[in-house]
Design a protein around this nucleic acid. Sequence first.
DNA 1: CCACACATGTAATATGTTACATGATTTA
DNA 2: TAAATCATGTAACATATTACATGTGTGG
Lengths: 183, 183
Amino acid sequence: MPRSDQSQTAILGALSIMPMTGYALREEIRDTLGHFWSESFGQIYPALAELERNRLVERRQVEGSRSSTFSLTDAGIAHLRGLLAEAPQPSKPRNGLMLRLFFGAQLGPEACKQLVLDAREQAESTLTHMEAARSEVLHDPDLVQAAPYILLTITAGEHSARATIAWANEALAQLSDLETPRR
Amino acid sequence: MPRSDQSQTAILGALSIMPMTGYALREEIRDTLGHFWSESFGQIYPALAELERNRLVERRQVEGSRSSTFSLTDAGIAHLRGLLAEAPQPSKPRNGLMLRLFFGAQLGPEACKQLVLDAREQAESTLTHMEAARSEVLHDPDLVQAAPYILLTITAGEHSARATIAWANEALAQLSDLETPRR
DNA sequence: CCACACATGTAATATGTTACATGATTTA
DNA sequence: TAAATCATGTAACATATTACATGTGTGG
């Protein structure tokens, strides 16, 4: 089985919400699933080609245009449900921030503080995006079916971002103590 | 520059805390950094070989044994500091749980609930591990220098796990509402 | 002396990103 | 009409996992 099942899941899933081109697929995945998923061009087109070979998606040429819209076949929907039912394969974590803090003794408190500040800022920006996403989801008529589930992922993002902010504040306090050793 | 800088950072960092064999390196990374980092055998040995070629680590053969201990050279410490100072490269997220929930309409509330239950259980287990790790770090004499920084990463893990648990409880309530549509 | 953990490494494979090539369509 | 965006795809490269090959030391 070439092409990761997980990429197929994301692609079939996105097409289950609405048919679209490969290009749009990448934009949707980046903009909508971006906080917890990513696919690159180099994966999307070959994966689409294979899904087409297996009759799981259908390409519909737009009249007088080179671009084509992909949509799920019945077999594609069945396949998607099968993939979703499989246990999520745990992704190998690679958190560059934590790696740096872990060896922070080599870096010094100042640089660590800056890393934590950056992380906090990013979490705050995530929080803003999540709020915007929530109202988009609630107002998009294409998403009435999917909305309750999508909202779960948005809530997860918010919880995670708030946890990061709370942790960052604690961490900054700790780092300040390290900076000025008691005299 | 072959071999990701990030792998080198993890390896040099681990060796900065204490010299060890390649085998031990993998065990340490799995057991100690496991919650936010991973390296596999296939990366560690080639990376060590290259670090050795660049005189960033030194191999010391143990008397009458085939195994050897790697330790940092002065250039290695300098290199490590340089790597740590670089901005963490954001890892492409791939959260299988969120992917499944996002398309949960295809899966149904029951299966989604099970996924969330599993996630909560895992977070609870993480919380237990973090507690154990904290007391280990506080009692290991090799870690006196590094401890304050390592504790930051443990605290981060705890915040994140607690956020997951809180979210899971909310999500389960939402999913129950979906299961029994009002009549 | 057998099984298991320690130890080093390579090869095959899988996965994923980036840069490039190409051209159509839209918008300023 | 020039520039930006949309659109499809490939090739080269980078990265990472898994299985395998090989052998040593140690405890039951």
